[in-house]
Amino acid sequence: RRVTVRKADAGGLGISIKGGRENKMPILISKIFKGLAADQTEALFVGDAILSVNGEDLSSATHDEAVQALKKTGKEVVLEVKYMK
């Protein structure tokens, strides 16, 4: 599913991630910080795999590559996510 997140002037997306190619895992949302941008969408969940950020494929990204992709986003971020059981 596709989720658009609008960041506030102060603060980032409000998520922590884990996983990555070096761990043989997808990039997973490991924490959502209450009240910040990702939480306010009410459409992102701990355990979601982030498949892409603004069209940039993260399916084979390392953890560091995913962190950089998320950091360089502007005010509006489009995440392609899939819930992983």
Rank of each mutant, 00 (worst) to 15 (best):
R2F: 15
R2A: 06
R2Q: 09
R2L: 12
R2D: 02
R2T: 13
V3I: 09
V3D: 00
V3M: 04
V3N: 00
T4Y: 13
T4G: 02
V5H: 04
V5P: 02
V5D: 00
V5S: 02
V5Y: 04
R6E: 10
R6Q: 13
R6W: 12
R6A: 11
K7S: 11
K7E: 07
A8T: 15
A8G: 14
A8R: 11
D9V: 13
D9R: 11
D9C: 13
D9E: 15
D9P: 14
D9F: 12
D9H: 14
D9L: 13
A10H: 15
A10M: 12
A10E: 13
A10I: 15
A10Q: 13
A10L: 12
G11R: 11
G11W: 07
G11V: 10
G11C: 11
G12H: 09
G12L: 12
G12M: 11
G12N: 12
L13W: 04
L13A: 02
L13N: 01
L13P: 02
G14Q: 06
I15L: 11
I15G: 01
I15K: 03
I15Y: 00
S16C: 13
S16E: 15
S16H: 11
S16K: 14
I17N: 02
I17Q: 02
G19M: 06
G19F: 03
G19Y: 00
G19W: 00
G20T: 00
G20F: 00
R21L: 08
R21D: 02
R21T: 08
R21C: 08
E22W: 01
E22R: 03
E22H: 00
N23S: 11
N23C: 11
N23P: 03
N23D: 10
N23F: 13
K24C: 11
K24H: 13
M25K: 07
M25S: 13
P26G: 05
P26W: 00
P26C: 03
P26V: 02
I27Y: 00
I27F: 00
I27A: 04
I27D: 03
I27Q: 00
I27H: 05
L28Q: 11
L28G: 04
I29W: 03
I29R: 04
I29G: 03
S30W: 06
S30E: 13
S30P: 03
S30K: 09
S30Q: 09
S30T: 11
K31Q: 10
K31D: 10
K31N: 09
I32K: 04
F33Q: 15
F33Y: 13
F33E: 15
F33W: 15
F33N: 14
K34P: 15
K34G: 07
K34F: 03
K34I: 08
G35D: 09
G35A: 04
G35W: 00
G35P: 06
G35L: 00
G35E: 05
L36I: 01
L36H: 13
L36M: 14
L36E: 15
L36V: 06
A37S: 08
A37K: 07
A37E: 08
A37N: 08
A37C: 07
A37W: 06
A37V: 07
A38C: 09
A38E: 05
A38R: 05
A38P: 04
A38M: 08
A38L: 04
D39T: 01
D39A: 10
D39N: 05
D39L: 03
D39V: 02
D39H: 08
D39Y: 09
Q40W: 03
Q40N: 10
Q40E: 09
Q40T: 09
Q40R: 14
E42V: 03
E42D: 14
E42A: 13
E42H: 15
A43H: 07
A43G: 13
A43N: 13
A43L: 09
A43C: 11
L44S: 15
F45W: 09
F45P: 07
F45H: 12
F45N: 14
F45Y: 15
V46D: 03
V46W: 02
V46N: 06
V46C: 11
G47C: 01
G47W: 02
G47E: 05
G47K: 00
G47P: 00
D48V: 01
D48C: 05
I50L: 09
L51W: 05
L51A: 07
S52L: 02
S52Q: 07
S52A: 11
S52F: 05
S52D: 02
V53R: 02
V53P: 04
V53M: 04
N54M: 00
N54D: 15
N54R: 01
N54I: 00
N54W: 01
N54T: 00
N54V: 02
G55L: 03
G55E: 08
G55Y: 01
G55H: 08
G55A: 04
E56K: 14
E56Y: 14
E56F: 11
L58E: 01
L58R: 03
L58W: 05
L58Q: 04
L58Y: 00
S59E: 09
S60T: 14
A61V: 08
A61M: 08
A61P: 02
A61N: 07
A61H: 10
T62F: 00
T62V: 01
H63M: 13
H63G: 06
H63W: 09
H63R: 13
H63C: 14
D64G: 11
E65V: 05
E65S: 05
E65R: 06
E65D: 10
E65K: 05
E65T: 07
A66F: 06
A66D: 00
A66V: 02
A66W: 02
A66I: 00
A66S: 04
V67P: 02
V67D: 08
V67G: 04
Q68M: 11
Q68H: 11
Q68F: 07
Q68A: 12
Q68T: 12
Q68P: 03
A69F: 07
A69Y: 07
A69S: 09
A69L: 13
A69G: 01
L70D: 04
L70T: 04
L70F: 11
L70C: 04
K71R: 13
K71Q: 14
K71E: 15
K71G: 11
K71W: 09
K72Q: 14
K72P: 06
K72D: 12
K72N: 15
T73I: 09
T73C: 14
T73P: 11
G74I: 04
G74R: 08
K75M: 09
K75R: 14
V77E: 07
V77F: 08
L79P: 07
L79V: 06
L79H: 01
L79K: 06
L79R: 04
L79M: 10
E80A: 03
E80S: 06
V81T: 05
V81M: 00
V81G: 05
K82H: 06
K82F: 06
K82M: 12
K82N: 07
Y83H: 15
Y83C: 15
M84L: 11
M84G: 12
M84N: 12
K85G: 15
K85C: 15
K85A: 15
K85W: 10
K85L: 15
K85M: 13
K85P: 14
